[in-house]
Amino acid sequence: MRHPADPDDPEHPAAPGVRPYLRNTGPGVRYQPEPPPAPSPGPPPGSSGPPPGEQTTSLRPFVLTSGRVDGLDPNIGLETQVSSHPGALSARLSPEQRAIVHLCGEPLSVAEISARLRLHLGVTRILVGDLRAAGHLDVHVLENDFPDPETIMRVIRGLRSIS
């Protein structure tokens, strides 16, 4: 044991933001991650251009959503279930919107829509929000921010039955 595990040690109090930023450089090390790029002074959020190295994935999204990047509905989460209205496919839709409507005949999570259509998650959320506003989709919003004990118990029992 190299160090006493003393939570009252003033050098290493058990509080956020004060972790000892040590890096093990002993012989047991088998992996040194590349140091992340230093935080560049610019560009600030909202200015032109994505951060260096991010060009490929950042361009297409803004085209698909007509430049809209804010106004995301915070209720549309990754796991939020989405289902389309039966008549929605006859509406005039962009190819991406049509693909979403097509996929969501059965309820599907926003994350699955994004992964299956290879659409950026932020774009998916915007398109889903637009489709809902146009009355083509139901977005099944949860009432509680944190699941209730009964729901958690059901998850626990469900997981326990996995072998």
Partner: peptide, 17 residues
Amino acid sequence: TARVPSGPQRTAPPVPV
């Protein structure tokens, strides 16, 4: 807890956690 819109019977989505 899921606010399922009323309408003709459609598959009710699971509650996601």
